[in-house]
Every structure is written in C-alpha cells, then in structure tokens.
Nucleic acid binder design. Structure first.
Lengths: 230, 230
DNA sequence: CGAACTGTTGAGAGGCTTCAAGCCTAGTGG
DNA sequence: CCACTAGGCTTGAAGCCTCTCAACAGTTCG
C-alpha cells in the first residue's frame, strides 16, 4: 500500500467523510502510518493512549487479561474499523490490549486532532457516538449469548459472526485464518471444547475444516443451532 | 415527591448541569413525570422509543429476552441514572426491556429535546458520550467476569456490585430488595445454583440472609472470593 | 530443518443445571 | 383486615456438560 492510496483509503472512513479542506490537510500532516506484523502488540491494557487507530488493512484482536492466564477476546477489528477511541473519550487508560493477528496497516490519529474534530465537526462526533453505541449494543448481545447459550450454540454462532465479518472466498472458505485458541477465547471456552463441537459440525456435514481453514457448507443448519434472535 | 422538588432533582443530573435559561424552561415544559409501581414495564425490546428517561427515584432493571425463556439482566438503574438513550443515539429500536423492581419516579425527556441538546449543548453531549463509554467499559468487564469465573466467584462479585451501587443500611443490610431469580439472571446462572453459593457464604460467616434481605458481614472475604482485578 | 506452537482426540473429574418437593413470603381479592 | 394463592425460597439427588490433563500428529516460522 503506497502513501497516495492511503489518503484515498482514509476518505472511505465514515468518520472522516465530513471534513473540510483545513481538516483534511491537518489529518494528512498529523497522522502516522504503521505497518505491523502478525503477533505485534499495538497497545496494552493499562497504558495511556495518545490517539486512535484506523485500520487500513489486516486484522487486529482486542482482548483483555482475564483470570487463570486466559485472554478473552472482546472483538476482532478489520479494515475500516477504528480502535482505541473509547479510552480517549472517557479519558481513562486502556481497558483492553490490541494484537495483530493478520499483518496490518494502521493509521494513528493523535488525540489533539481527535478532540478538535469531536468539538468542531458534528459529522465526526455524531459518527463516533454511533460507533460507540453500536459497540455497546453488540457487547450486550454478545454477553447474553455467551452466558445463556451452550458451547455448541456459541460455536455455531461464532462461525456465523466470522462469516458475516470476513466473508467467504470462492471455495466457501472463511476469509480469515485464526487459531482455535483465539476462537475459543472469543466464546469463553477452551480450545478442546471448541474442537469437539467443530468435530460434531463436521460429522453433521455443516462445515469442513482442515487446520486453520474453515469451509462453511450449511449456513441455515448453523443458524438453527445458534438459535439467533432468542 | 412534589413537583417543585423535581426541578431541583433534575438539576442534580450531570447531563443537565450546563443548561442555559432557555433550555431549562424547555426541559420543564417538555418533560413528563411518571410514577411506576413495582412490576410495571417501562418499555419493551423491539419498541421504538420517543425519548429518554431520568430516574428520580426507585430501581429499574434493564433486561433482554434470552433463550430458554430466561431474562438475563444487563444492569440495574437507580436514582440519578438515565436509561433508553442508546437506541435514540443510534436511531434503532430498543434492544432491551425495562421493568420496575422498586417503585419508581421517572422523568421522560422527549427525543426532539434530546436531539436539540445533543447538537447545541456541548456539556450535555459530552456527558452523554461519557455515559455510553462508561457503560461500554463496564459491559466489557462484566463479560469477562461472567465468562471466565465460576458461579461462586460471580456470586461474591454480584454482592460487591450491589453493595457498591445501593449501599448498606444501619444494620449492614443491602439497601435493595431483589429476588434470587433476578440476581441469578444478573450473573448468568439459575436461582438454585445461586442459592447454594449463598448458603456456603452463610456457613462461612460472610453474609447473613433471610429471604430477600442480605446482610454483609465480611467484605474482604467476599472480595477475596470474587478475585477482583484479574 | 528443528523447535515451538497448534490441532485433535480420549478419559476422567467436577461444577452446574435440571427436576422435584416442601416451606414460606408477599401481594390479591373478598 | 384476613385468608388465599401464586410465586419465591431452600435443599436434595441425579445426570450432563464442560474443563482439565495427557498424548501425539500436524503446522508454522525462524
């Protein structure tokens, strides 16, 4: 990804869609582009952040350090998503960590510019509020799922989530390569338990999976298991 | 509660602290006060809301309709809290329901005024953003707790939550009367399991409980069990 | 190419839920 | 105001679901 296309990419972010000439110039001057390899940590729980990140490419996992050495994953962020804005808004230290799970290109927008846009650009601030609200809603939904559904139901649901968020390639394979441990951490279980459910799904002809590659064969079957919408 | 004190009560809400003369008058004209008895439903999941509610008195539970006929409780709201604002901000239908569990006095602020304040009063909009962010953070924290902790740990934690939010009376009793079913629904378990943990706590001298009245005897003991902060 | 991590399956243990049954509390209607 | 009834409280027993531990095959990446 070359720099000239980055300006174009940034324009695709809804939050930046209402910027005037002055703001655009300032964004281009103040921003920093980072290239991160898989496995690199972008920020850590407890640290004080000095700006937000727009994801231009790759996949980032947002997680917490939980009890018993686990690392529950809050969500996955991909191209088009923004991360690290919540702690800025409430002026707290980060309550999550972020790690790259698929080589990523990030655009750092400094706190000062963020504040300026929040105060002076209603499209920006309105869009940020919408993002937070959406996250709050999905966080609530997620909670219900994880607490009141069995591992089998959650295993089906996470496949649907990955499908919706990352899509399929031409051969019906999920367009994301992610470890079973990470998936298990997304639905609050251990890799072994997740494994067993996937094995079941395989026997039932719902999916095919070889290592990290997952093929979705029967969407409606998975939906039935996941019991979406109550 | 008489009407003259209501204006005073509303001023106590941080979101209204920065209003000018005009906005104050409009709030007083446009608002509606509702008196709700225990058990009454304020709004239902899926309905379109026409304003937010400020809780002037009483306790309201925010819950969802989950699988298997359960009603997982997202949070409890008391005097000083505002509810139903999220769906307004993202212009969606309500994703939760709200029911009174302790006789309540609510102040309804219509959507139009809400929008006006969001656009014209930076103290108001800033405070709303902070409220959403705080909720998002606690929602994330809550999720981790509920997923990766045992029922015993969660049972201890919910007591600490109730203690912090509602406090104790002179005799060390929690200042909230809530059913075991509701508490169980807050920590993602069934009343019977919660019961057993409370019985244990009783044997260990951590609490005393008779029916809906819960007395906290050993705070640090509960904290140790809850394993707060990882 | 080798070490470290991940994937996969099995066996066993234990925590939690479900079902059941009786007591008690609280809210309703006469 | 009191009796009644529905629902909440409480405990026990049984069984299932999920986690833990273990072992080995496969994969990834330096």
């Amino acid at each position: 990804m070359v720099l000239s296309t980055i300006e174009y990419e940034l324009k695709q972010f809804k939050i930046f869609s209402g910027m005037n000439e002055f703001e655009s110039v300032r964004l281009n001057n103040d921003k920093t582009i980072f290239y991160h390899k898989k496995g690199e940590v972008i920020y850590r729980e407890g640290s004080r952040l000095d700006g937000l990140y727009c994801i231009l490419d790759g996949i980032v996992k947002i997680y917490k350090n939980g009890p018993n050495g686990r690392q529950p994953i809050i969500c996955l962020a991909k191209k088009g998503d923004i991360i690290a804005y919540r702690s800025l808004l409430s002026n707290e230290t980060a309550c999550t960590s972020a790690k790259v799970i698929s080589d990523a290109v990030l655009c750092h927008v400094p706190y000062s510019l963020f504040l300026y846009l929040m105060d002076n650009n209603p499209i920006f601030s309105g869009e940020i509020v919408r993002v937070v609200c959406r996250e709050l809603r999905s966080s609530n939904d997620y909670m219900i799922n994880i607490v009141h559904k069995s591992v089998r139901e959650r295993a089906a649901e996470i496949l649907l989530y990955l499908l919706e968020k990352f899509g399929l390639d031409g051969n019906k394979f999920l367009q994301i390569r992610i470890t079973k441990t990470d998936i298990a951490n997304m639905i609050g279980t251990v890799p072994e338990s997740l494994m067993r459910e996937f094995s079941e799904f395989r026997k039932e002809g719902l999916i095919e999976s070889v290592g990290r590659n997952i093929k979705i064969l029967n969407l409606s079957g998975l939906e039935k298991i996941a019991k979406l919408n109550i």
